[in-house]
């Protein structure tokens, strides 16, 4: 388990050397792209973290979680996951802001923290992808695309709780 990451990194580098690629230059190029990504998302992230911070500091998020928790807990579902699950298909940065809120309140290694991490790692910003791909192709009628895509997102939320519950506790 703990060897996954070093194995991926080492095999990529060894394969690159074997194919006679200048792996150092490639790595540096990639770092530049990574920095570009961070710079690209930074303004949106700061804006949404401020908005989520407002909701948190006012006590509104706790209020919502308290409202949902009796229902959620009766089926073993962490209540903190609900707001994030709702925001995830609409706004990637918004969901990340809520994710960090869960890390801060419950810890990244808590049950809720792990479930939220799995949701974040196994879903995408659905509405963004649908708009972009169909927009570029000039498609007006998308039929059941959104239904199937959102069903996949919902499945991810449910399965995250099941896998974390079965494999990690």
């Amino acid at each position: 388990m703990e060897a996954i990451i070093p194995v991926i990194i080492t095999s990529v580098c060894v394969y690159g050397l074997f194919r006679r690629i200048n792996i150092f230059d490639s790595f540096v190029e990639g770092v530049k792209e990574g920095f570009g990504t961070v710079r690209f998302v930074a303004p949106t992230m700061i804006a949404l973290l401020v908005a989520v911070g407002t909701l948190r500091a006012s006590g509104f998020l706790d209020f919502i979680a308290e409202l949902i928790s009796p229902l959620a807990e009766s089926v073993g579902f962490p209540a903190e996951l609900v707001p994030m699950g709702l925001l995830r298909p609409v706004s990637g940065s918004g969901a990340t802001a809520l994710l960090t809120g869960i890390y801060r309140d419950c810890g990244p290694d808590s049950f809720a923290g792990r479930c939220a991490s799995v949701v974040a790692g196994s879903t995408e910003t659905t509405f963004y992808a649908v708009t972009m791909y169909y927009g570029a192709a000039g498609i007006k009628k998308i039929r059941h695309t959104l239904f199937s895509a959102l069903l996949a997102d919902l499945t991810a939320i449910i399965v995250s709780v099941i896998t974390v519950g079965l494999l990690m506790s």
Partner: peptide
Amino acid sequence: CMWSGFMRIAKDC
């Protein structure tokens, strides 16, 4: 940045 670096190697080779 570290991951984009390694994944860029993967792409280039």
